[in-house]
Design a protein around this nucleic acid. Structure first.
Lengths: 218, 218
DNA sequence: GTCTATATCCTGATAGAC
DNA sequence: GTCTATCAGGATATAGAC
């Protein structure tokens, strides 16, 4: 494995174990078995390394979501709410539960992208998510034609929150208990999907002022 | 104001602005206008200061939730799902939107309690939340007698996630845009409560294996 | 209780030999 | 590309005068 790869790999594990802020370049290079100076040689800075670690997981995740959405749209038939929810949620659940694919880091990214010093990485994240959020919002609008656009954004938002929290928490559980239960993606989906379907289909409260939440990422 | 109080106050603001990990004791004492050594004198360590900052917001929040639950139970009548959801959510929404009460810090606590180095503060948080979670789970069970206990825990979990995320995101929005909209607690409730009611009342998927998510805090 | 001064250690980054 | 050595600075914590 190349030095660059070894650094990314080591960084991901250490970020997952101890958090990004608590992980120094010295920890990373020592674990990777490479020289301290190699980080700056290969990435330019610590922040650039962090982005590289994030991107390695985010890009395949969002490509998989778009692929599944393409697949649904390619049928030409109207797409059900449930299919859209699953297309959005299943890929992230699957990755988050997969040690090989960097699940543990993934949930830390979630929290830390909101936690980091007034969002040093905000532009980076916005770029990673824009297309996915736009396309899913549009498709959800098609599946829920009676739902006002604003309400739809809020509910998309609630869905992301419920899912993110579930992932974060279960992941913590695994880290702490060390229990391996790769099969529980299906269990989680069976709990979460009906909850979300019902939420999306809830009646809309009347006399609603106008405001949209910031479209957010995970 | 006492030195101790000044330190807590300054720490809260700096944690909210730059994150806990990025805030040093030097930042805090300099902003508080006190001596560096005062932190260790009054709190013993940096971590103990962090807990003190958290506790100042968490204790009133959870007491308010319990107070509202007491109030509902004191009527002797059956309690509606909506009342329970509001009793749990409204206090945290209100605090999170109130600059005076430390809203900005609050959302960081949310994220950072999951983000911090393998949960240095886990015992602390567990202690802060145990009673609230137990009592609300029990009351929700009363309002949804047909819902299996496990499913109820999952849905409580989803509620926390959707709410936490909404708070975190809106708070970020405010930090970034600088917009002040204290009135939008009502707006948020009007969006969130129907979503959650519907979610709690969703049909339960059949043939469900058994597993409970870790009860989690915010 | 509050201060100054300092011990001890770790940080990210870089210069320059190989 | 990889190494050693080092810079310049910041971290927490404490000893000891007042």
């Amino acid at each position: 494995m190349s030095t660059k790869q070894r650094i990314i790999e080591a960084a991901e594990h250490l970020f997952a174990e101890g958090g990004i802020a608590a992980t120094s370049l010295r920890h990373i290079t020592s674990r990777a078995g490479v020289n301290l100076a190699a980080v700056n040689y290969h990435f330019g800075s610590r922040d650039a390394l962090i982005e590289a670690v994030y991107a390695r997981r985010l890009q395949p995740l969002n490509m998989e979501r778009l692929r599944r959405l393409d697949e649904l749209e390619a049928t030409g038939r109207p797409i059900s709410l449930e299919d859209l929810i699953r297309a959005f949620i299943e890929p992230v659940l699957r990755i988050s539960r997969d040690q090989e694919l960097g699940g543990p880091l993934f949930i830390r990214m979630l929290g830390q992208s909101y936690t980091e010093t007034s969002s040093r990485f905000e532009r980076f994240f916005t770029g990673q998510y824009r297309e996915v959020l736009e396309r899913f919002a549009l498709a959800l609008g098609g599946a829920l034609p009676a739902l006002p656009r604003e309400e739809l954004y809020w509910r998309l938002h609630f869905m992301i929150g419920a899912t993110a929290y579930t992932i974060a928490d279960s992941q913590l559980l695994r880290l702490i208990a060390g229990s391996e239960r790769p099969e529980d993606v299906e269990l989680t989906l069976a709990r979460l999907v009906p909850f979300l379907i019902a939420g999306f289909q809830a009646p809309v409260a009347d006399c609603m002022p106008t405001a949209t939440p910031r479209s957010a990422a995970f």
